[in-house]
Design a protein around this nucleic acid. Structure first.
Lengths: 350, 350
DNA sequence: AGACTGCAGTCAATCGATTTACCACGCCGT
DNA sequence: ACGGCGTGGTAAATCGATTGACTGCAGTCT
């Protein structure tokens, strides 16, 4: 059966197509109440929904938005970010174009051109890792950066508040009584936005607590379980009075590596050492034994924020249009007080 | 700057818009070679790209496809499936609409209506878990089912070949010399398509190898590490002559639970017991210690297949248009020969 | 009476392409 | 001289909506 067109509604209601359009778009200032109802009933009766293509041609607005992402494939975060974006789009009666560029700059350019051609109402430029990016050419004014921020500014952006996240992680450990707290960092992030901010949070809180960090407490490894394990082993090799009782890890996978290292030395978590991760990857943080206390990346909320700002239903902050999204702490079972022997033996500030 | 329209090209080339359209769409049987070149040059010079909205209105084809999925959020598989679909779409010059319905039937209906209104050229109906579904109403003829199959048939579908996957997993264990092989099943999958097929594969191979399965070897648990651990403990409690030396697990998370159970009894993998998982979840299979041998779900290939069939660049099989995508084995380090004492002590068929 | 003002709708142009039907021209054959 | 035919291209209709300009009519004011 052929699509129902506006002229079918017009015929059924005994009016012109103009009238139908005016009524259904609530621009009907000059149409009588009685006619309006007749039109609405006719539209419902014949099951009319406007053709978005035709409407788009005329109005230059398509009720679609494009989401360009460097890679949805290789990270398990993608889902929540897309889900947040997609939900916000749906709630605002928009459809979402998804393009995964595979981090290929040429594909990215091509995608943006295609989306602009399609007359999307806005573009979300999403990264799967928090970083600073050189914005691609041809981005329309209504563009929002998601989990990244444009080097040149000029567009709204939303990123996790890594600094605050780092602070809450370390505060949690300090509050539990730890004073020798390691920072199990990731190496070669490029650029190291997340790593540096979390590190600053770490330093802030130590300072606040009057703890002078031992440089040996800052170790690095690749961002996997293996990397975390290696880094943890170096820390556990430290002499007893310098060996950390708590580990703040760049991500959950590295934290899982810390678990492995600890187990190999017969150390029990959280009895002997406490661990805090970052990311809240369900598959890792929720499944290790004991479940990992960690800082969640607010991917869903960021996805939603980006779309809402892009569609204008939410305002970007002024004057810096970058929103820092809080990273909530997820309490599980990997943190407790340090062993009695170690408590209060941290190095105090002079 | 305003968009370049076809009339701008026509003006630049000194011809009519009809001619431009004919030339650029290669329908120019009646246009001289010379004119064609002039038109192409003019188009390139002014940087013309056709307006897909206008074209879509006229041709009723939009070069877009819709992907409706029950939930991209809660599973880390989504990425690869979307990536495959998205790549195939891009290669065929199509754009992909993504809709996540959150498994809400009403949202799903609404989404399909919206996509049909948008005149997408095809719809991919994707599930995040292999299952049989009641197809929603209003699906256009050019629809393809991804990781699910319609109860009523009638549409192309692509699903993992779970039966063959189950077989290769168990064959791997049999080939290593195991004869007491457990099936660590998931409980309450609804409907249990994947579980049953893998189980049949398990039974097939045991039969093939002349092994009579002990009913106690079939245990169930929720599909998480905790579930796998609980199930494994029941197996390890069996008397020594019935206790399995190998564990085929419904998924990698459950396999990780088997690791935990084994460790708690001082058993080493793969020296004391061998384990094979399913899914090849990077975050789990690649990160546990030792890395897990498992069967990969071919999500990327399935996503690609679905789009290619939807766009007609690939044919669906006949007469049953359901394609079984092979699940490749991923060899890691969790399988070896059984301990000498246990070898060859499985129960033989009468 | 004539001009003016609202009211209730409608006409027709428009968005930017595609495509069918037609036209102008030159040449050929009879 | 005239019909027929091939060539090369164009005019105009069309897709399905939106929207600014306009019309017809009744009542009001001067």
């Amino acid at each position: 059966m052929a699509r129902v067109r506006i002229s079918d509604v017009a015929a059924a209601a005994g009016v012109s197509t103009s009238t139908v359009s005016l009524v259904l778009n609530d621009r009907a200032t000059r149409i009588s109440q009685e006619t309006r109802e007749r039109v609405r009933e006719a539209a419902a009766a014949v099951g009319y929904t406007p053709n978005p293509i035709a409407r788009g041609l005329r109005t230059q607005r398509t009720r679609t938005i494009g989401l360009v992402s460097d890679e949805i494939a290789t990270t398990p975060f993608a889902g929540r970010m897309l889900a947040g974006a997609q939900d916000a789009a749906r709630e605002n009666a928009h459809l979402l174009f998804l393009v995964d560029t595979g981090a290929d700059r040429a594909v990215e350019q091509e995608a943006i051109r295609a989306l602009v051609d399609q007359q999307v109402d806005a573009i979300i430029y999403a990264c799967m890792w928090h970083r600073v990016v050189e914005p691609p050419a041809g981005l329309p004014p209504r563009s929002v950066f998601l989990d990244c921020r444009p080097a040149s500014g000029g567009h709204p952006a939303v990123v996790p508040d890594e600094l605050a996240g780092g602070r809450s992680a370390v505060r949690e450990l300090v509050a539990a009584g730890h004073r020798r707290i390691a920072w199990v960092d990731v190496e070669e992030q490029d650029p190291p936005v997340a790593s540096e901010l979390r590190h600053r949070g770490y330093l802030d809180v130590l300072d606040e607590a009057g703890i002078v960090p031992d440089p040996a407490w800052h170790v690095r490894g690749v961002g996997s379980a293996a990397g975390g394990r290696g880094a943890a082993e170096r820390l556990l090799d430290l002499p007893a009075d310098r060996r950390p009782t708590a580990f703040f890890c760049f991500n959950d996978r590295m934290a899982a590596g810390v678990y492995v290292a600890a187990r190999h030395r017969g150390l029990e978590i959280p009895r002997d050492i406490s661990v805090v991760g970052y990311d809240d990857q369900q598959l890792v943080a929720g499944e290790v034994d004991p479940p990992l206390t960690t800082i969640a990346l607010p991917h869903e909320e960021m996805g939603r924020w980006a779309v809402e700002v892009a569609l204008g239903v939410r305002e970007a902050p002024e004057p810096d249009p970058t929103h820092l999204m809080p990273c909530p702490m997820v309490h599980r079972d990997s943190v407790s007080s340090p062993p009695a022997a170690a408590a209060n033996s941290g190095r105090r500030r002079a």
